[in-house]
Structure formats: C-alpha cells, structure tokens
Computed example of a mutant assay.
Amino acid sequence: MEQDAAHDRAVDAFLAAANTGDPQERDRLLSRALTADVVFWGPLGRGVGRKAVAEFITEVVRSHPSGPCRMVRTTRVDAPDEWARFGWRYEDAAGRVLLSGTDVVHVTADGDIDEMIVFAGALT
C-alpha cells in the first residue's frame, strides 16, 4: 500500500504541474514527481530531463487554442511493482473532453518517475 501511495503522489504531482500556469510552481511540482533525468516519450517524440517535460507542458498542454485546459486523472493508478499506468483526459474550461489516453510510468524506489510513455487517443 505504501508503494501505491508513492505512485499516486508522483502521478498527481505531474498532473498538478501540467495544470498550473505558474512556471515556478510547475518546476517545483515536477521536481516532486520526476527524476532529473526522466525519459519522456510523448506525442512529439522523446525528451530527456525535467526541462523537456516542462517545455512540453508549456508548448503543448498549456498553449491549446481552446484556451486554458486541464489534465484530469480518470482512473486509479494501477501499479504492479515499479511500473504503473493511469487513464487521463484533457478538457477545456467547460469540461469538454479534447483528448484522452493512458500513460505508463516507471517509478523508482524513491517514488519518482524516471520514465513516462504517453499514449494519447483510443486504440482501434
């Protein structure tokens, strides 16, 4: 159960970072969620480090044409050992779902995400 709480904390800190418009708060939250050398596989390719994740959030998540949008966790964090997955949705200010998906993360013994793979959209 302690492991599950660590996975939840890391995932929820990442989502909070994605949802804040304050770059300093984003950096603080990402430092709670991610290792400094996190490997991030997103829809635009591979990035390494918290800065790459912060730039993805700034350029893609926070800059949507629909205006301020937010990431919402839609499932529990399913965590068999150090790997975890969770469902999410990206919604506009009115709550309209713009995109949904599943992320897979690897969590260290310290409770930090050191690898994240984003799967956006439904499998057909």
Results as ranks from 00 to 15, higher is better:
D27W: 03
R32C: 12
V77D: 08
P23A: 02
P80F: 10
D37G: 04
F56C: 01
R50P: 01
W41F: 13
V11P: 04
L98Y: 08
F86H: 10
G87A: 03
G87Y: 09
L44E: 06
Y90I: 07
I113C: 04
A6G: 14
E59F: 05
A13Q: 08
T58V: 08
G101F: 10
L99P: 04
S63R: 12
E25A: 15
G67W: 05
A54Y: 00
T102Y: 09
A36D: 11
A94D: 12
L30T: 03
W88K: 02
V38Q: 06
T35L: 06
L29I: 02
G111T: 03
I113W: 07
P80K: 10
A120M: 12
G111Q: 03
P23F: 00
A10I: 08
D37H: 09
T58F: 02
Y90M: 08
C69Y: 02
V11M: 04
G95P: 10
V72K: 14
L34M: 10
W83P: 08
D110E: 15
L30M: 09
A52T: 01
P43V: 10
L99Q: 14
D12W: 05
A10R: 11
W41N: 11
R28D: 13
T124D: 09
V11K: 07
A17F: 08
G87P: 09
P23G: 01
R32P: 01
E55G: 11
V53S: 02
A52C: 02
V39D: 06
R96N: 13
A120S: 14
V72R: 15
A122W: 12
G87Q: 05
S66H: 13
W88M: 06
V77G: 10
M71H: 03
T124V: 14
R62Y: 00
V77C: 09
D12C: 07
E115S: 14
L34K: 01
L15K: 09
S66E: 12
R96W: 01
A13E: 05
E59A: 11
A94M: 07
